[in-house]
Each structure stands twice: as structure tokens, then as C-alpha cells.
Simulated assay, not measured.
Amino acid sequence: MDTASFLSVLTSFPTNIFFVPFVILFFVMAIDMVFDFADAAFGELDFFDFDAETGGSLLIPPVLSHVPLAVALCVTFFVGTVMSYYVDTLALVHLEGVVATAAKIATVPVSAIASLHVASWLLKPLQPLFDKEKTFATVNYIGMRARVHSSTVTQERGEVVVTHQGNEYLLDVVAETSAPMAYGDEVVILSKVEDSKNYVVTKI
């Protein structure tokens, strides 16, 4: 199969149902890693909670509720793309007309459910890395120096990186004052905001 045929399958129904969202999410995540615009724009807003929305549905593996939504969706759409691509090229290619259309429509929910479970299996080893409560439970960051990781730190939001015993920890912070703080600035952690995961920092 040449490149043109390969791209034609990816951008045609039903594979494009998974491929297009995967491409969009992948580039959004890649750009956010560089510019950190999502945190600046949305802060700690939680737009979707797998546990709350599904009510413990068997269709949604519990592992996916313990990793960032963007990561879970990106991996799920990637797996769905691979599944749909091979189903289309190996099975559906032999069908024609109304039968082909009906078969393609039927494969979408099947591929979606299967991709959720495969994605959960792939992400399960990474689940502890996203559990901030367990990761940060034994470290007292008060008084430590850190480096600003987000584009800016304001009195509403920001991120810093703390190095402790050779490990780097990413913390959500807010500024003590309105003094400007930008990426790379050195700060010191003063205290922890009550009933919050945020720490208060000031520029050194």
C-alpha cells in the first residue's frame, strides 16, 4: 500500500472517527508541553470526571480515571485508529454498497469499546506516576527552593519544579505577591494553601 492509499484510509470513514481526534489531541499536547498554554488558560478546571460521568460503568476501565484526560483520550484514539485501520483494510474492503456502510457503522462502537480497554492496559503501568497524593505524601516542600516551570506564576496559578534527593517534582503554586515571575526564575516555597494542593511561593 502506497502513502496515498494509506492516508486515504486514515481520513475516510470509519477510521477518521478515531484518527482526526488523535491528531488534534497529539498536537495540542505537544504544543502545551512547550508553551504551557492549557494551564494558563484553564488552571485547575476539571471538565470531565470519568468516575462521576460513568458511575462506575464497565465500559470505562477504572485505570482511565486515574490518568490525565488528555493522555487517556489520546492513547484511546490512537488504539482505535490502529484497530479501525486494520478492520477496514482486511475485512471491510471486501464489502460494497449498503452492506459496507452498515458494517462500517457497526465497527465504530466495537472499536471504541475495545480501544478503551487496550488503552487502559497500556496506561496501567503509568498510573502511579499520575497519583499526586501518593507521590507527594512523604515530602515537605516548605522552605525548599524551586524553579518556575509554567510560563508565569500569578496569585491565581502557576507551576514549579522542585528537586529533592535527585528526583524532580512538579507542584501547583500561587504567588505571594503580584511581583512578576516567569519561566526559569528561582523561587522559595513559603507555605501550603489550606484545603488545596497549591503552595505559596516568592521570588528569590
Rank of each mutant, 00 (worst) to 15 (best):
T3F: 14
S5Y: 03
F6Y: 10
T11E: 02
S12A: 11
N16G: 01
N16T: 07
I17K: 03
I17Q: 02
P21M: 09
P21K: 09
F22K: 04
M29A: 15
M29H: 06
I31M: 15
D32Q: 08
V34N: 04
F35A: 12
A41E: 11
F42T: 10
F42C: 11
E44P: 06
E44N: 15
E44W: 06
L45I: 13
D49V: 02
D49T: 05
F50G: 08
D51S: 15
S57Q: 11
I60F: 13
V63Q: 14
L64D: 07
H66F: 09
L69Y: 10
A70M: 14
V71C: 10
V71R: 10
A72K: 09
L73Y: 08
C74L: 09
V75W: 02
F77C: 13
V82N: 03
Y85H: 10
Y85P: 07
Y86D: 04
T89K: 07
A91D: 00
L92I: 03
H94K: 12
L95Y: 07
G97S: 08
G97N: 09
V99W: 13
A100P: 01
A102K: 10
T107C: 14
P109I: 04
P109S: 08
S111F: 03
A114M: 12
A114P: 01
A114S: 13
L116I: 01
S120W: 01
W121G: 13
L122T: 04
L122D: 04
P125S: 06
P125C: 07
Q127F: 03
L129I: 06
K132D: 14
E133C: 04
K134V: 03
K134Y: 01
T138A: 14
M144L: 15
R145T: 10
V148L: 06
V148W: 02
V153T: 00
Q155N: 13
R157Y: 08
E159Q: 15
T163A: 10
T163Q: 09
H164D: 11
H164G: 06
G166K: 06
N167T: 09
E168H: 08
Y169G: 02
Y169M: 00
L170Q: 08
D172W: 05
D172P: 01
V173A: 08
E176W: 04
T177S: 15
S178M: 08
P180I: 04
D185V: 03
E186C: 05
E186F: 01
V187R: 02
V187G: 03
V188Q: 10
V188G: 04
V188A: 06
I189S: 02
L190P: 05
D195R: 12
K197N: 14
Y199I: 01
V200M: 08
K203L: 05
